[in-house]
Design a protein around this nucleic acid. Structure first.
Length: 271
DNA sequence: CCGACAACCTGACGGC
DNA sequence: TGCCGTCAGGTTGTCG
């Protein structure tokens, strides 16, 4: 479930555990996830002190005092298990601080990734260089969306999923934001009325902030009850609710598939 | 530029 | 209990 809010929650959970702490051990239980781990990953992290835990789009960034930044991506199924009672299947990398806190990067499907790059070059790294603005940052808004949507025939759904336009949205929150803004997911970007674009510019951060708030509240002392960071149940308005009544008009929520991914929407309220 | 599709992997779930 | 098909929050590349 890692879209922007989940990654934000994970990094907020890691921050108090890692910031200012040194890694005593980093155990790699395999040599790769989506891609091979960088050479010397374990050695380069062991003994390093964490300066900051932050986020860009769906990437978690961990800066160290050695001038390196660990770039982590949770893929589809990645989780950070905090002080796990025991090791679990798919605990691929285990970080242990000198204070004895343990974090296990668990990722069943192995679509996640770990990269280590010079902190000074992080923003220019190929993974991050092409990303659009943060939807919760100052560069995001109706004007910027208007420029990105103008003259586009591509569906609004596809444009919002395009990380070069806005960085951090995934399938769930795109569905939710489009519902909130009253925009049909298949509507061509260029045909979205200005008023709806403004609504969308409000809906996107609203939906994300609500999710972050829900995640944060379920975190308590930095972890869900099962020690997992980053995943929390949340009631969605339309996502995953095909056939259920629209919370606004009561008509059944519909599901269509766009470029291989499910879109959930209300055909009456979203045009 | 666009969109459909496949690939990367494992697990959960429903039907039989 | 097992087997089978379907689906899953992401990213990347190919093809037409």
């Amino acid at each position: 479930m890692p879209e922007l809010p989940e990654v934000e929650t994970v990094m907020r959970g890691l921050a108090p555990v890692w910031t200012g702490q040194r890694f005593a051990r980093v155990v790699l239980n395999r040599g790769d996830l989506r891609r091979p781990f960088p050479d010397g990953l374990g050695q380069r992290l062991t003994g390093a002190t964490v300066l900051a835990c932050r986020r860009r789009a769906k990437y978690g960034l961990v800066d160290t005092d050695r001038g390196d930044t660990l770039i982590l991506h949770l893929g589809m199924s990645g989780r950070m298990r905090l002080d796990p009672a025991e090791t679990a299947k798919h605990d691929h990398v285990v970080f242990e601080t000198e204070a004895g806190r343990v974090v296990a990067f668990n990722d069943a499907r192995r679509f996640g990734s770990l990269d280590l790059v010079a902190t000074a070059d992080v923003d220019r790294h190929p993974l991050l260089a092409g990303l659009g603005p943060e939807p919760l940052g100052p560069a995001f808004g109706a004007a910027m969306l208007g420029r990105a949507f103008a003259d586009r025939l591509a569906p609004a759904k596809a444009l919002l999923l395009d990380q070069r336009i806005v960085a951090g949205l995934g399938n769930i929150y795109v569905c939710e934001a489009l519902f909130e803004a009253g925009i049909h997911p298949a509507r061509a970007g260029g045909s979205v009325a200005t008023a709806r674009l403004k609504a969308l510019a409000k809906a996107v951060p609203a939906v994300l902030e609500a999710a972050i708030a829900a995640g944060g509240s379920s975190l308590r002392d930095h972890a869900a009850p099962d020690g997992t960071l980053g995943y929390f149940q949340k009631g969605f308005q339309v996502y995953g609710r095909a056939g259920e009544p629209c919370p606004r008009c009561g008509r059944p929520i519909e599901r269509i598939v766009q470029s291989g991914r499910s879109s959930f929407f209300c055909a009456h309220d979203q045009r």
